[in-house]
């Protein structure tokens, strides 16, 4: 565990806390893509199948359980909580997210480290996570206005990805056999998807104005 990896995990955790805070405090999920949240729930469940087969550390197990539980809780709130579900921007959240699931799974069947159920689901989760933010970015683009907590949620998610890249660079330089092509290449693609959002986030921060995305 290096400082970049820890910072990445903490910003990831923080992003989820910000999202939960928004939903809990405002009883609203406006501006949040349920499709992206469902993709994250699939990502965590598919990736952490090793929860039952490999023990790495208490920290690792704890974080995995937190990520699975929080992503399922968010999806549950957006679908079934009587007040939260009413604020869902259904007509803006129209991205065909099943295509992403299908394409990621097909890619995982072709590109994986080993041809086992666990490894294929692991690769699938990596590919799906890389593109899972797309429905959210499309929703923001369509609604134009971004409220503070939603903006911070996406900012922390992007920061988590950026820290993971620094973590891989650090590991590549310090560990003799660190080669993880599937995770690293997908991670770079995933981070690149945030570039546009970051650009507008920093502009609004610099001008001390409300975050707005161009139509």
């Amino acid at each position: 565990m290096n400082i970049f990896r820890l910072a990445g995990d903490m910003t990831h955790l923080l992003s989820i806390l910000v999202l939960l805070l928004k939903i809990y405090a405002t009883k609203s999920c406006s501006g949040i893509s349920r499709k992206t949240q469902e993709l994250y729930a699939i990502v965590f469940v598919a990736r952490y199948l090793d929860l039952f087969t490999d023990f790495i550390s208490v920290y690792n197990t704890f974080m995995k359980v937190v990520f699975i539980a929080s992503s399922l809780a968010i999806v549950w709130c957006m679908r079934f909580h009587p007040m939260v579900r009413r604020s869902y921007d259904r007509e803006l959240d129209t991205f065909r997210h099943y295509f992403l699931v299908g394409a990621s799974f097909a890619l995982a069947l072709i590109l994986h480290e080993k041809f086992t159920v666990q490894e294929i689901f692991w690769a699938f989760s990596i590919y799906l996570e890389a593109v899972a933010i797309l429905p959210q970015l499309v929703l923001l683009q369509r609604s134009g206005n971004v409220d503070n907590l939603t903006g911070q949620y996406i900012f922390f998610l992007g920061a988590y990805r950026a820290f993971y890249i620094l973590n891989w660079i650090y590991r590549y330089l310090t560990e003799p056999h660190f080669t993880r092509w599937i995770a690293c290449v997908s991670g770079v693609v995933q981070t690149a998807l945030y570039a546009d959002f970051f650009y507008y986030y920093f502009i609004s921060w610099k001008n001390n104005s409300k975050l707005k995305l161009p139509a």
Binding site: D9, I56, S57, N60, N167, A183
Partner: peptide
């Protein structure tokens, strides 16, 4: 060798 395939990241 086993250590290389252990997925220690989240």
């Amino acid at each position: 060798v086993k250590n290389q395939v252990v997925k220690d990241e989240l």
